[in-house]
Each structure stands twice: as structure tokens, then as C-alpha cells.
Amino acid sequence: MKRLAGQILTPQGFVAGAIEFADDGRIARIAGTPMELQAVRDSTEPLVLPGFIDLHVHGGGGRDIMEGRDAAARVAELHARHGTTALLATTMTAPAADLETAFAALKPVCAGRGARAARVLGVHLEGPYINGGKLGAQPDFARPVDAAELKRLHAMAPIRLITLAPEIPGNMEAIESLVAAGHRVQLGHTLGSYEDGVDALARGARGFTHLFNAMTGLHHREPGMVGAALAHAQYAEVIPDLLHAHAGAIRVALRAIPCLYCVTDSTAASGMPDGEYRLGRHKVTKCLGGVRLADGTLAGSTLTMDQALRNLVEVLGLDLADASRRVSTHAADYIGATDRGRLVAGAWADAVVLDRDLNLMDVYVEGASIELAQ
């Protein structure tokens, strides 16, 4: 039985002790002495946190999910090296044939896991059921919800999360049936009003895609989709690269949305040098720490989840336990993966080992080290 020692973050707080991993990849037991937060800060022992969970991943390591073939497997390896132990492969707005190519390649990746890769839990379908007037960096193939298309794609690879614009005719009415079919629905790439957002939440939508970005903003007489999220949401995703949203805006969301969680919205440029990369049918350029279309529009990010954690702690001032929840536990709970995103007996043995500067020392996915040194 494998054993991992350090200062371990459990749901009850930090303990100085060890985790034992069972042969089936789950946590057998955690034993240790409770620690005060100040003692954790003062110690030189490694920190052991739940593995990161990223529900919005388009690419990484030079590969794009929409390519098909072995792209998703390579993307899962890149993000595992940055502490992500589970993720949703995220598709782009695209013609049906392009989506089917991506989904056909995702089926075996969702069914199995590479030795040094994150677990791909399923698909985040970001579009095509969005508003063509709020594409952001999405290609212009937006269309209303198509039940037959969804059924066909879901049979190829499991769709866990769907982003849609509720104001598009037919989309609002589709939310209840999508939720009943087991999909999590969230709102994004939308010109919808505050009232549209509230109505969609009442019908079963649960979250918001990259909060603040590609949605109607907050105005005191027209609160917009951002206002609906801040006033009513339990969950929303945000990109904490400090380019997509100002630190002050993220602080507002942290105060308003109890289970705000972080995503990378990462692209093929993640983990790669400056240059030109693919994002769906778009060519994008990485430079100055960001990824943009030719017209300057932000087009996903180069963020990784280990940097997201550091930004939460070092820039936004969150304590480590709160920051950890926002890069793992809340996302797991949001999609119903309650055996991930926490270090407890019976959960999957997904963990990151960090030094005092929050740099990764090791990553365990389902009890197996991915061996960062290789």
C-alpha cells in the first residue's frame, strides 16, 4: 500500500500525517495530527492538497481537442504535469462533422486513462448553442439546441456540461429536458438579460461560463447576465489569469457566489512558447502571456491550474484551504463527482504535493505518481 506523508488538507483542515492509497486507486485512510493554519505556514514539510479539477480545457502542449486523433490524450498529459488530475475536454462551436470528429476521438480517452495523464471525465460542449452576436473567440457556427445532434454526440462520448445562450429561440425551453437527461447546463456566450438568466436558473441551469466574459455586463438599471450570476448563482466558473477578469472583479464574484470555481479555458498554446496555434477552426497567437485572434480578441488562455492556485493565494489573498476548494472541490461538486476534489477515505487518490512557494513537487492521479521529473 502506497503512503504519502506531509501536511494534508482534509475537509476538516490540515493534518500532519500520511495518506495511504489502496491498490484500486482510492484513499484507504488518512492519519495525522490536526494543525493550526499558522503552524502549516511555518513548517517546511510538503503540502498535500486535492488534485485540481478543470472543467474547461480546449487544449495544451500544442494540441487542440477539436483535432481529434490523439490530441485529448496529449492534452491530458500536459495538464497533469501542472496538477490537474481530472478535466472536461471542451469543444468549440463548429459544424456537426467537426464535432463528430472530435467526439469519436474522445470516446476511448473518456473510457480509459494514460499512465501520466489526467482523468478525462467527459465533455464540456461550449457551443454550438450560443448567441452568434457574442461569439468571443468561438467560430461562427452558432445554432439553437438540436436534440438529435446532442443525442448522437452523447452516444459517442459523455457530455457532462453544456454551455448555451438562453435567449436563443428554443434554448430556454430545452433546459429542463437537458437537465433531466443528466447534463449540467450553464449560461454563456450570451446577449441575454438579467431576466433571461433568472428564468434559466429557475428551469434548472446551474452555472455561468467564464463569468464576465462573453456575456451582458452589470449596469445598475440593466443588471445583465453578470447581474443574474452575482445575485442568484451558487456556482460559476471564472478564469483567474488576471487577463480575462480584473482582480477586483474576481473579488466581487468571490463575495457574491458561494462556490465560484476556477477554470483555465486553456488552449493548445498552454505550456508552449510564443507563436501561432489552433483553436477549433481559428488560428490564434500566443504572446505576452495571452492568446488572441488577429483582431486582438482574447481567445482562451495559457493558464494552468497550479498558476491559478498561486494567483488566488498570492494576488487575491485567499487562504490556502479556500483557494484549494476553488480549484478542485467546488468543480467536483458542481458536476456531481463527489468522490474527487477532496482528500477523504474512499475518494479517488488524486493529490498534488507542493513546496512552500506552491510549486509542484509531485502529482498523483488515482494513486499513481505521474513522475514530474521525467
Rank of each mutant, 00 (worst) to 15 (best):
L318C: 07
G296W: 14
G289K: 00
V315C: 05
G289I: 06
L279A: 01
V313W: 09
L293C: 10
E314Q: 11
L288I: 00
S301W: 04
N311L: 11
R292N: 04
L312M: 09
E314G: 03
T297A: 02
V313K: 08
C287G: 13
K283L: 14
L312P: 00
D306E: 09
V284L: 02
L279C: 01
R310A: 11
H282E: 15
V284Y: 11
M305G: 10
R281L: 13
G280L: 09
V284I: 14
H282L: 10
G290H: 14
L320D: 01
G290Q: 15
L288H: 07
L318A: 00
L279W: 07
D319R: 04
T302R: 07
K286R: 13
M305Y: 15
A294D: 15
G296N: 08
M305V: 11
G289E: 06
Q307S: 02
L320E: 10
Q307I: 12
L303H: 05
G290M: 14
L318D: 02
L309H: 09
A294Q: 08
V315R: 15
N311Y: 15
C287N: 14
L303A: 03
S301N: 03
N311D: 08
G296C: 08
L320S: 06
L318N: 00
G280R: 03
Q307K: 08
H282S: 12
L279S: 12
V291W: 02
R292L: 15
G317C: 05
G290Y: 13
E314P: 05
L320P: 10
D319L: 07
D295H: 11
C287I: 03
D295Q: 08
V315S: 08
L318P: 05
R310L: 05
N311M: 06
A299I: 00
L279H: 07
V315D: 14
